[in-house]
Every structure is written in C-alpha cells, then in structure tokens.
Amino acid sequence: MDNPAAIGGHDPETEALPDVAPQLRELRRGRGLTLEAAAARAGLSPAHLSRLETGRRQPSLPMLLGLARVYGTTVSELLGEEPPERDPVIRAARAEPVEADGWIYRQAGSSSGRAMQPLRVTVPYGAQGDLVRVHPGEEWIHVLRGRLRLGLGDAVHVLEPGDSAHFDSMTPHRLAAAGQDGAELLFVHTLLTSPTNELCLPGGAHRR
C-alpha cells in the first residue's frame, strides 16, 4: 500500500491532531472505559489507541468510525465539528474537508440524534486499498466521479460513476480507487450508538 505521507503530503506518524486527540481521551474517560477496554472494542492495541489520544499518530477514517461507534457518538463530534443539532441543511461552505489517512471527506448531513451518518468522500489512488473493514451495521455508497473497486467477501466489483452498492458491513469489505485519478463518492453508514458495539478489523488491517 502506498505511504499516506506521499499521498497527503505529510507524515501521519508525527503530525499531531490537537482537536482529535483530546476528544478521544475525553470521550473514553466519559464513557468509563479503560484504555485496554476501549482499544479491544475498537479492534486496536492499547498502545495504538494511546498514540491516537496523545496525538502521536493520526487516525484513519475507519478508525474514527470505529471509535465513534464504541463511544456512541459521531466522527463530527470526535473532530469537534458538530453542527447545530438536527440542522436539516448542510451548506457547502460549512462542509470543510477533513483528511484522514489519505482519504478526504466532507460532512453531507447532520448526524446528531440520527440513525445514520452521510459523508462525501474523496478516495485518492493507492490510499487504504488493503484495509479490510468489518463492523456491525449497513453501508451505502454511490460513485460520483472516477471508478471505485469494492471488495465484498471474495467478490470484487468495479463501480462506475452513477453506480451504487448497499451491503451488510459485517461482510469483510475493502474500498479503493480503481484509477489513477481517484474516486469521489457519497458514503452513508448506520450509527450504532451502544458502547458494546465493536469494530472488528482482522490482524494486519492497519499495516502501511
């Protein structure tokens, strides 16, 4: 897999995230979870979660999604960018891009008190292509631009602009741009707010 530093123009191993790191620590403590318990539920090692909480490692979008499920919150809250509660309109000017491990995403709906979270995601070529995702819930994706390679279990599908996919996210899945120009998609996932829900990533899923 390509080094995210080459894709995003920075080194995620050393770049601190002053907004995300304190939020991760505060939410974990607020839920009464030890570092070990929260890490186990998110499919991370305690050392890895500790580095995320101290800003010594940048979390990927799948990690943020998993931690949001564990803490019963949303990626927006983790980033300290929660919009006004139940605001039905998301203005383009307010949907500022956020980069996580090579992917760039923008909020596409208000998730406060909702059962799902919509995002607009830009997937550069080579970013996160070998990361296998497995977690409770459902996902829906719709390709806006470029070509997207979707691996579902043993099957591989190449989605063209206008194509969509809707699947049970307990099925192991991978997402990657199928062309050098990358891909852009609408991405909707269900929010499972129980702190007992886990993001289960097979060993090696976070390798670079």
Rank of each mutant, 00 (worst) to 15 (best):
E13H: 10
T14M: 02
D19R: 15
V20K: 04
A21S: 03
A21C: 07
L24K: 02
L27F: 10
R28I: 08
R28A: 05
R28T: 08
R29E: 15
R29S: 09
G30E: 09
R31H: 06
T34W: 03
T34M: 05
L35Y: 06
E36D: 14
A47M: 06
A47G: 12
H48P: 02
E53T: 09
T54Q: 13
G55L: 03
G55P: 00
Q58T: 04
Q58Y: 01
Q58E: 10
P59E: 11
P59H: 12
S60I: 01
L61M: 11
L61I: 01
P62I: 01
P62D: 05
M63D: 03
E77G: 06
E77R: 15
L78F: 01
L79M: 14
L79G: 08
E82Y: 07
P83A: 12
E85C: 07
D87P: 03
A93G: 06
A95E: 05
P97I: 14
V98A: 11
D101S: 15
G102I: 01
G102W: 00
R106P: 10
Q107F: 03
A108L: 14
A108N: 14
S111T: 07
P118T: 03
L119M: 10
R120L: 14
V123L: 13
P124E: 04
Y125M: 04
G126V: 00
G126N: 09
A127C: 06
Q128L: 14
Q128C: 10
Q128P: 04
G129C: 07
D130Q: 06
D130I: 04
D130W: 03
R133V: 14
R133Y: 08
G137F: 01
E138K: 08
I141N: 06
L144N: 09
R145K: 12
G146T: 02
L148R: 10
R149L: 12
L150G: 09
L152V: 11
G153D: 13
G153P: 11
D154V: 11
A155H: 07
V158E: 15
L159N: 05
L159V: 02
S164A: 15
A165Y: 07
H166L: 06
F167V: 06
T171E: 14
P172G: 01
H173L: 13
L175P: 00
L175Y: 02
Q180P: 02
D181S: 13
L186T: 04
V188R: 01
V188H: 01
T190A: 05
S194N: 15
S194M: 09
P195N: 07
P195H: 02
P195W: 00
T196R: 14
T196E: 15
N197S: 15
E198T: 15
L199V: 08
C200F: 13
C200G: 01
C200K: 13
C200H: 15
C200E: 13
G203Q: 04
G203K: 07
G204Q: 00
A205R: 02
H206Q: 11
R207W: 10
R208S: 11
